[in-house]
Amino acid sequence: VRQEELAAARAALHDLMTGKRVATVQKDGRRVEFTATSVSDLKKYIAELEVQTGM
């Protein structure tokens, strides 16, 4: 499950970095929206997932 969450989070980051205004991911069973202003929060979430998956 964590691998899927990590892939979704990375895709969301890619979307935001390429101009999409809002990206949505499932985080702990709930839907979370990230915007360009919350990229740093999304990067932290990705880092947490990488630690949890041993990457």
Rank of each mutant, 00 (worst) to 15 (best):
V1F: 12
V1I: 13
R2H: 13
R2F: 13
R2M: 12
R2G: 12
Q3F: 14
Q3V: 14
Q3A: 12
E4A: 13
E5C: 09
E5K: 07
E5M: 10
L6P: 00
L6T: 02
L6A: 03
L6Y: 04
A7S: 10
A7I: 11
A8R: 10
A8E: 12
A9F: 04
A9C: 06
A9G: 02
A9N: 01
A9S: 03
A9W: 02
A9Y: 05
R10Y: 08
R10M: 09
R10T: 05
R10V: 09
A11Y: 02
A11D: 07
A11S: 10
A12Y: 01
A12Q: 02
A12E: 02
L13R: 00
L13P: 00
L13E: 01
H14N: 13
H14E: 11
H14D: 08
H14L: 11
H14K: 10
D15T: 04
L16H: 01
L16E: 01
L16N: 01
M17D: 05
M17F: 04
M17R: 04
M17G: 04
T18R: 10
T18V: 08
T18L: 10
T18Q: 11
G19V: 02
G19K: 03
G19D: 05
K20H: 12
K20M: 11
K20V: 11
R21W: 05
R21T: 15
R21N: 12
R21Q: 15
V22K: 08
V22I: 10
A23W: 00
A23C: 06
A23M: 01
A23R: 03
A23G: 06
T24F: 07
T24Y: 09
T24I: 14
Q26T: 14
Q26Y: 10
K27M: 14
K27C: 09
K27E: 04
K27L: 11
K27F: 06
K27H: 07
K27W: 03
D28E: 09
D28G: 09
D28Y: 01
D28V: 02
D28P: 03
D28T: 03
G29Y: 01
G29R: 03
G29M: 04
R30H: 11
R30W: 06
R30Q: 13
R30D: 08
R30C: 10
R31V: 15
R31C: 12
R31Q: 14
R31N: 14
R31D: 15
V32W: 07
V32G: 03
V32I: 13
E33Y: 07
E33K: 06
F34R: 03
F34E: 03
F34L: 07
F34V: 06
F34Q: 03
F34P: 03
T35I: 05
T35V: 06
T35K: 04
A36E: 14
A36C: 13
A36W: 14
T37K: 09
T37R: 05
T37D: 15
T37S: 14
T37A: 15
S38Q: 14
S38K: 05
S38L: 08
V39H: 03
V39L: 15
V39R: 02
S40H: 13
S40P: 10
S40K: 10
S40R: 08
S40T: 10
D41L: 09
L42A: 00
K43T: 07
K43R: 12
K43Y: 09
K44C: 09
K44N: 11
K44W: 07
K44H: 08
Y45G: 01
Y45K: 03
Y45C: 05
Y45M: 09
I46Y: 00
A47M: 09
E48L: 10
L49H: 01
L49V: 03
E50Q: 06
E50T: 06
E50Y: 05
E50H: 04
V51C: 13
V51A: 15
V51E: 15
Q52F: 08
Q52W: 07
Q52R: 08
T53M: 15
T53I: 15
G54M: 05
G54N: 11
M55C: 12
M55L: 11
